[in-house]
Amino acid sequence: MTENNTTDQLDYHKQKKKEEMKQQVITFVLMIVFTIIAFAMVQSDLDALFVIPIILVLAAIQVGFQLYYFMHMSHKGHELPALMFYGGVFTAFLCIIALAVLVWW
């Protein structure tokens, strides 16, 4: 009985990992598509002020995919890593704003 239970559990976990791997491949395809869109927009004759915000948003989405799917931040038990990483991101934001203001004021 217990023997059966553990094999069932193993199968269940194996299936779960397989599904996750599938999600990660889909994520990868989306990231490739976003990259191609960003490069294509820059090559086109669109206005720079229109293109820049869009490619920055595309980059942010790609990084989100990378963090949540490839680096497993969507899994349980990532509260502390998220706190530390977003703490770093917040400081990074302040840092870029400060340097930009210093130069362009």
Binding site: F85, G87, G88, A98, L102
Partner: peptide, 26 residues
């Protein structure tokens, strides 16, 4: 190791932000 490494990555983010900020300014 897992917790400590994420802490380190937070610090790396700040390091690269300072370099990005410098690049954008110059």
């Amino acid at each position: 190791k897992f917790i400590g490494f994420w802490f380190f990555l937070g610090g790396e983010t700040v390091l690269f932000a300072s370099l990005f900020g410098t690049y954008l300014a110059l």
